[in-house]
């Protein structure tokens, strides 16, 4: 894939938070790309920095956070340093987002229609035209009786319907990139499958790229073209989904997958737990970030940070032993 085909390219991104006890380096030197129409899964434990990464792309970082370095390019345009005004033009138009909790993400005291009209603030069309577009979009996400339902308040929809409304809002402007932040985590298994199917269907029609952030390895296997795995603020492995699942190269990925392969197929809702805890992101350890929990760690791992390199089917692996045989993990 050539550079111009990429919708999103994140290059050497670092983000920190000012905290009372020091600078917390939540995202460090992360690089990846998303091609036009591609679906990319971003996987990692809570606290691995994937939410910070998402907020950086959308420029919704809280006040204590700062982009320390690197670039975020949307079709070549740098978002990390774009003025606020420019971001307001792009957000909801060329980049959209679906958040996790459908109970909380819509304004509870405004009707769904009002909110769907408000987000068309770039358009100079009449209110009636905006409303018609909103109704049409609700129909596309299979909201029954959309013409009347549009005047309902969010709490009058069920959880699954509310998430479909959120998807309708996000895709109404037919964006180039949809960021989906754990959009199905709050739903039960049946609704989750239906929502994923809907998302895939609309993605094929609209042709947008999706950055799909999730805990859920099964969804990634089913939906995503590529997978990026984050650990403690760093991208530890990335590559085509099939390649990475077949032959993970980073010990962290191997541990995630190896815990119980059967459960991955069963669409596990949570990442398997690995003994040990995340390193201190304020006082970072020397060497490899995963060394403290890695069964393969040697002295070198504790002193020298590995550079990312290609190994096996993966395009980026941050491990000194990326080419070593797969770990033997007791079940």
């Amino acid at each position: 894939m050539t550079q111009t085909d990429d919708i999103l390219s994140v290059d050497g991104l670092s983000v920190s938070y000012a905290t009372p006890t020091g600078t917390l380096r939540a995202v460090r030197d992360v690089s990846f790309t998303i091609g036009r129409g591609e679906i990319v899964g971003l996987v990692g434990e809570s606290g691995c920095g994937k939410s910070t990464l998402m907020q950086s792309i959308l420029r919704l970082l809280p006040g204590a956070a700062r982009i320390e370095g690197g670039a975020i390019r949307l079709s070549g345009e740098d978002l990390a340093h774009a003025p606020k005004k420019r971001m307001r033009q792009l957000l909801g138009d060329r980049i959209s987002v679906v958040f996790q909790d459908p109970m909380e993400t819509l304004n509870p005291v405004l009707t769904v229609g009002r909110q769907m009209i408000d987000i068309q603030h770039r358009s100079r069309e009449s209110r009636a035209a905006k409303r018609a577009r909103a109704v049409a979009m609700l129909k596309r996400v299979k909201i029954p009786d959309a013409e009347t339902k549009i005047d309902s308040y969010p709490h009058e929809f069920s959880g699954g319907m509310r998430q479909r409304v959120a998807i309708a809002m996000a895709l109404m402007a037919e964006p180039d990139l949809l960021v989906a932040d754990e959009p199905t985590t709050a739903l039960d298994a049946t609704l989750e499958i239906a929502t994923i199917d809907l998302l895939r269907e609309l993605q094929e029609e609209i042709g947008c790229a999706i950055l799909f952030i999730t805990h859920h390895l099964g969804v990634v296997a089913e939906l995503c073209d590529r997978i990026d795995i984050m650990y403690a603020g760093a991208l530890v492995e990335s590559g085509p989904t099939m390649e990475v699942f077949r032959d993970p190269r980073h010990p962290y990925t191997q541990l995630l997958f190896a815990c119980d392969p059967a459960q991955i197929a069963e669409q596990r809702r949570h990442l398997p737990s690995i003994p040990g805890s995340l390193p201190d992101l304020i006082d970072l350890p020397q060497g490899c970030i995963f060394a403290g929990r890695c069964p393969r760690a040697e002295d070198r791992c504790r002193t020298e940070a590995p550079a990312p390199r290609a190994a096996g089917g993966s395009e980026q692996v941050r491990c000194h032993f990326a080419d070593a045989p797969r770990l033997e993990v007791p079940a």
């Binding site: 959308l58 919704l60 971001m87 307001r88 033009q89 792009l90 957000l91 909801g92 138009d93 959209s96 987002v97 958040f99 909790d101 909380e104 993400t105 819509l106 304004n107 509870p108 909110q115 408000d118 987000i119 603030h121 770039r122 959120a166 809002m169």
Partner: peptide
């Protein structure tokens, strides 16, 4: 601090609004 405000921001609605 509620997340629907984050949603509104994510759609580029102005801070004033």
């Amino acid at each position: 601090g509620q997340s629907h405000v984050r949603t509104a921001r994510a759609f580029g609605i102005s801070d004033r609004r």
